[in-house]
Amino acid sequence: MNAPRPESAPPAPAGSFLRRIAWHWRHDEKCELWIGWWTLVVFYNLYGLLFFVITRTQPPPEPSLDPMEVVQWFGDRRHGLLYGYALVFIVGGATAIMNATLAYSIRRMSVSRAFAYSYLVIYALATLPGMLLMGVACTVGAMRPDRDPAVMSWLYDLAFLSFEGTMGVFLIGSLIWMAAVLLDENGVFPKWFGYLNLCNALTEVVVAPAWIFQSGAFAWDGSIAWWINMGVFVIYTTAFLTLLRRMILREDFGTGPLPELATDPAAGSAP
């Protein structure tokens, strides 16, 4: 798949969406990269839908709820939690493709492979506490709402603290990506994205007080520990999805600097 497109391949059609998809599937040497990129786009949209709308676990509820309020919280969204997390567990494996695509972008840089491998490993581990453990705790709570309120309260704390616990992973992951972008001489990403990684890393540090406070700006649902961070994360995610798409368009499967995008629209196209 790394070979350049054969000369005999027909030009990309400008017709229907399905025809264009079929052309890319058969002739585009970047097909795997596009699958990875679309997986990222679909996953993040699905993540938003599942966590914000269906399970309603984001924005996070107050940490200061008493056991009876926690039971009420589980009861209010019982079906959302059960059906929502069933879907989360189905699509959870997609993180492997997403992480591979992100690691590929680092491998394309002129820096040591250690950056890409570290990034891959650290984000693979992040899926366990940040998504799966939280999902298990919420599902266990929702499955039998007649449990002892003290146990429900324990599950509630476990769910949200495990979610918050990924902050260190995102901190180090962002720093790895930052260092790779700033050291890279292949121009895979612009340097401002390296600095944006630093911003994102610093907002992860801000989550740390969530382990101490049960209310206010620094609690896990607080304006500083959650709302501002989420704002930064949305900008950061939008930036790297856009830059990854641009990287794929520019990809020449070489090892040197990535060529700039040609002004000729026929030179590269996205499905």
Partner: peptide, 17 residues
């Protein structure tokens, strides 16, 4: 100029704080 993007972004984050 990339560093100035960082400056601007940090200014926004701190303004929020």
């Amino acid at each position: 100029p990339d560093m100035w993007a960082f400056v601007l972004f940090e200014a926004f984050v701190f303004t929020a704080y």
